[in-house]
Structure formats: C-alpha cells, structure tokens
C-alpha cells in the first residue's frame, strides 16, 4: 500500500510557558541517603577499661585494667549525585541543574565545588544552594554560593543548582560538578594531621574525599510537534481490500504541544493513486481545493494546509481521500 512519509514544517515560537518551572518540578524528589549505622563523630573519645574478678584466699576481689582512650579521627568522605542526569533545555531560559551532595564523613566539613562544561560557550559561573529545599531554584530563597562551597554536618545533605544560560546550549553539553573536602582529598587512607574537626587528624575515606557527577543538557524541549497518519480503505465491493478503484481516506492528526508559529502540513498524493476532488477537510470542515481564503489547497501532487500561527497548544485533524488507480 503506498504510504509515503508525510512532512510537517514547524517554526517554533519562543516558549512563553514556564518550561524551566516544569523541568524543575520533576526534581523535587530529593535523594535521602541515611547511613545504616550512624558514624561516630570525629573527636569522640573511646574509653576502654576491663574489669577482672578473681578469688584469692577465699574472697572475691576485683581489679581494673589500665584505661585505653582512643579519639575518633575525622573521616573525609563525600558523594554527589546528578539529580537530573539528562536535562532538555529550552533556548533562552535559565536552567538550574540540580546536584545533591552528602557529607558521608563523620565530621563537619566544607566542600569546595568545581563546575566544568565540556562545550565551548556554556559558561558556568554561578552556583546556588537550594535554601528552602523545595527542589526548584528561586532567586529569593536560594542564595548564590560565592565562592562555590558548602559546609555540611556529618550525614547532612544539600542540593545545589548550577545555573546555566539555556541560550548557550546549542548541542548536547555535559555539566560536571566536582566536590572535594577542604581538609584534603586524595588516595583513601591519606592522613592530614590536625586538619580534622577540633584539631583531630583527618583521614581520607573510600571516596577519596572527592566526587563528581555529570548532567547532560540537550537543546530544545522534550515536547515536539507530532503528526500521526491513519488510513481507511473502502473498496467498490464494500470490503476494505486495497484493490483498483478502492478509496483510501487518510486522517492526519497534528499535535502541537505549545504556541507554534508558521505551521504548515504537506502530504503528497501517493504514487498509483489519484486525489479525490473536494475531499479535503480540516477539523471536520470541508475545504475547497482552490487556493483561496480557507487554509487548504489540493491538487494532483498533494494536499497543503496552512495553519499559520497558533497561539496555544492543540491538535488538528486533516482528512482527504484518494482512489487507487
């Protein structure tokens, strides 16, 4: 059955709907990482004394051992997660890329943030803290971090936003956020003498006291105009077999997810068929084949509908028929 591809040409209006808000609303679900066993805070003294009881000369006696005191050193550990590993960006809109940082160490620690972008032109110079913890960036509640660093209690987590100008995102861009403990980072087990809480030694944990996460930004919104095509066949014998003389009625449904400018729909008449005169209809209203005031024209080559500028989202249905030659 001939069914050539249908083309739809759409020039997109600048998105007036708050694409940013919609994107960020999805980021509300915060990662809540709770350590299985709360780590002993850095600086905690661990005091051990054993008692020994015994019998001598018929009487029970007790002695205590010496007391051994250990002080828990500060463990430097951190994790960072890209809350939105991939983010679609509407051009011109400011995009807040969310990351969640967790201090998985056992002492209060400052973590410096470094943000890098792999695409030229995508400059990241601002990082904000999700001050009210709602998962969405607002200028009034989420302060900018200058210099970019966060101080976290043991086990505490925070969400940060890397602020990117969506207009700069022309191709897929990777934004990488790296956190590292201010007291020091490096190979697990590295000791920074006296660098921990209250002058305790700091010891690098399994994370290396450093972690990175990447979020990939891609241009254009996730909602694209779409066109669906369906057909029904009516044969002269009343069946739906595609035979000579049968009429194929095509139904095109164009769905536009937002305000869209300059919408035209063109569908060529399939080879081996002939357009059935005056069969063109838009949203169940018949259109003339001539080029005139109504938005549709049709000829032997194809049908053309000019919807023009559409102020709101919506869908439109076009129908026309051809006869199998």
């Amino acid at each position: 059955m001939p069914d050539r591809p249908t083309s739809i040409v759409v020039a997109q209006r600048k998105p007036r709907l708050a694409a940013l808000a919609a994107l960020l609303a999805l980021a509300v679900a915060a990662a809540t990482a709770t350590p299985a066993m709360a780590a002993v805070p850095a600086g905690t003294p661990i005091v051990n004394t054993a008692a020994l009881t015994f019998e001598m000369n018929g009487s029970a006696q007790q002695v205590a051992s010496n007391t051994v005191t250990l002080v828990s050193a500060e463990l430097l550990d951190v994790t960072i997660t890209a809350e939105r590993p991939s983010l679609a960006v509407q051009s011109q809109a400011q995009v807040a890329v969310p990351f969640v940082i967790v201090n998985t160490g056992n002492g209060p620690q400052s973590f410096a943030l470094t943000i890098t972008g792999n695409q030229q032109g995508v400059v990241v110079d601002r990082v904000a803290r999700d001050g009210n913890g709602d998962g969405a960036f607002q200028t009034d509640t989420d302060p900018l971090l200058t210099p970019p660093s966060v101080r976290l209690a043991p086990g505490e987590q925070v969400r940060i936003f890397v602020l990117v100008d969506g207009a700069q995102v022309a191709a897929a861009a990777a934004i990488t956020a790296t956190v590292s403990a201010q007291s020091g980072s490096g190979a697990a087990g590295t000791v920074f003498a006296g660098a921990g809480a209250n002058g305790a030694d700091a010891v690098v944990g399994v994370s290396g006291a450093r972690a990175s996460a990447t979020s990939t930004l891609s241009p254009a919104g996730p909602a694209q105009p779409s066109l669906a095509k369906a057909q029904t066949v009516t044969a002269p014998d009343g069946s739906s077999r595609a035979m000579r003389g049968a009429v194929i009625t095509y139904t095109l449904v164009a769905t536009l997810p937002g305000p869209t400018r300059g919408v035209t729909i063109d569908d060529p008449i399939p080879a081996g068929t002939a357009y059935l005169a005056d069969s063109l209809a838009l949203d169940a209203v018949a259109l003339s084949d001539r080029a005139d005031a109504d938005p549709g024209t049709a000829d032997a080559a194809g049908v053309h509908i000019r919807l023009g500028d559409l102020a709101a989202a919506g869908s439109h249905t076009i129908q026309f028929s051809v006869k199998i030659l």
């Binding site: 051990n48 004394t49 020994l52 007790q62 002695v63 051992s65 010496n66 051994v68």
Partner: peptide, 15 residues
C-alpha cells in the same frame, strides 16, 4: 585498687 593493681593479678588492656 589502682588501675594497675598492686596485687598479684595484673590486667592490661590494649587496643
């Protein structure tokens, strides 16, 4: 008894 007993039985703790 002092921590390190003066008596005949002594006990020492180490970690």
């Amino acid at each position: 008894t002092p921590a390190l007993a003066a008596g005949p039985l002594q006990v020492t703790a180490k970690v």
